[in-house]
Each structure stands twice: as structure tokens, then as C-alpha cells.
Nucleic acid binder design. Structure first.
Length: 209
DNA sequence: GTAGGGATACACT
DNA sequence: GTGTATCCCTACT
């Protein structure tokens, strides 16, 4: 990643008030900032997945609104955090207008600030292993259920524009680890980032468009 | 490859 | 109210 081109700039709620696919693509290279116990922890988004809502069989919202997924049906620009497999949290950003339960799953970050604190939270000192997966990055940023519904423009969590990757640096591929809907190329990642949750295979066997 | 783990939704009493 | 299948993962062998 060429950090000399990096520049932090604010996003607004309208950025999230679009289709999850567009937001997922545009979030690649953006900066997630977590204010945690007086520290600033931040990382650059290198991998996302889009979820469409009630029409998407892979989405929590597929069967309609419940108390669990209510945040997804709310206004855009809020965090939807859920607990999965009894072990892990996953961080999503709500997109689209209220009533449209679309969201973007943040799958991987490149750690930028607060790396020592992240290592402590993760009990792991391997940089490439700190935030290279949705459950890992939540642990590294101290994200848990209490941030479900948190404002992305609020006191605990912020999102900024940062890098502007060129078109060729962002790859699309099938979503990961889900039962249904994996024929859609709604996973976006920054190519050649060492912080992806799924490492690209050699010999170009990874499907891309 | 697979064990582990807790919340959730839904089908049953 | 209770039982059970499911879940977008990680860490271990």
C-alpha cells in the first residue's frame, strides 16, 4: 500500500445511504477509528462483503426484522455487531435508507494506530494476524455487543476516507463462509494486501472478475 | 480436517 | 416453556 497517497478526510452519512454493494467497494481503503479506554485504535479497511437485506438469503435480515437484526433496518451509518459461533463478534456497517436492511461486513483491516494495544487485546504479537478476519478485528479493536447500534460518527467509533485505491487494486470475489448466495461477487478486497482474511492462492486460481 | 462455543429462531409441547 | 438446528469463525491438530 502506498501510504504517501494517504489522506484522511471525513465521510458523511450520505456515503452510507447507498446500496451495500457500492458502499462495500468504496469502503476499501477507508479508515476505521475506535476510541477505546482513552486510546485511539485504527486500521485501514482491506476487505468487505455486501449484504442486501431481506432479499439476500445470506443476510440475517432475510427472514424479516427481529430484535437481533433491528439495527440493520434502521438508518445508515450505524454499526451492527453480532455474536457468532459462541466465540466471535462481527462488525457490520448499516447501509441504505431506513427500512432497507442492507449492510456491509468488515472482514479485514490493516492496523495503523494503537498496534501495541491491539496486540494486548488479541494476546497475539503477530501483526499479520491481528485483524485479518472479522472476528479477529473485533477483538483487536475491543468491539463487542455494546457497540451494536453505535453511531459511526459517534464518540466510540468513526470512519474516515483515507486511501483511494485505483480500480485495478480492488478485486471482487464470491463471499465467504456462507450457505446461500455465494454466486454473487460481493466480496471486495485490496489486492496484494497481506492483511486479508483469505490469502490469495497461487497460480491465479482465485476467482476474480 | 474439526472441536469449540453462545445466541438466536422456530417448531414443538 | 423446552428442544434443537443453525450461524457471515478461529485455533488447533
Amino acid at each position: 500500500m502506498n501510504k504517501s497517497l494517504a489522506q484522511k478526510y471525513p465521510l458523511n452519512r450520505e456515503f452510507f445511504n447507498r446500496s451495500s454493494v457500492k458502499v462495500a467497494k468504496d469502503l476499501i481503503g477507508c479508515l476505521v477509528i475506535r476510541y477505546y479506554k482513552g486510546r485511539t485504535l485504527s486500521g485501514v479497511i482491506v476487505e468487505t462483503e455486501a449484504y442486501a437485506g431481506e432479499t439476500d438469503p445470506a443476510s440475517h435480515a432475510y427472514r424479516g426484522q427481529t430484535s437481533r437484526n433491528a439495527v440493520m433496518f434502521g438508518p445508515p451509518g450505524f454499526a451492527y455487531v453480532y455474536f457468532i459461533y459462541g466465540v466471535h463478534y462481527c462488525l457490520n456497517f448499516v447501509t441504505g435508507p431506513p427500512g432497507e436492511a442492507s449492510a456491509v461486513l468488515i472482514r479485514a483491516l490493516e492496523p495503523l494506530e494503537g498496534i501495541e494495544a491491539m496486540k494486548t487485546l488479541r494476546a497475539n504479537s503477530n501483526l499479520a494476524n491481528l485483524t485479518s478476519g472479522p472476528g479477529k478485528l473485533c477483538q483487536a479493536l475491543g468491539i463487542s455487543r455494546h457497540l451494536n447500534g453505535a453511531d459511526l460518527f459517534g464518540p466510540e467509533l468513526n470512519v474516515f476516507g483515507y486511501l483511494n485505491p485505483r480500480a485495478g487494486e480492488v478485486a471482487a470475489g464470491p463471499r465467504i463462509g456462507i450457505r446461500n448466495g455465494n454466486e454473487l461477487l460481493w466480496r471486495y478486497c485490496l489486492t496484494n494486501s497481506p492483511f486479508l482474511s483469505v490469502k490469495p492462492k497461487k497460480k491465479g486460481s482465485q476467482k476474480q472478475d
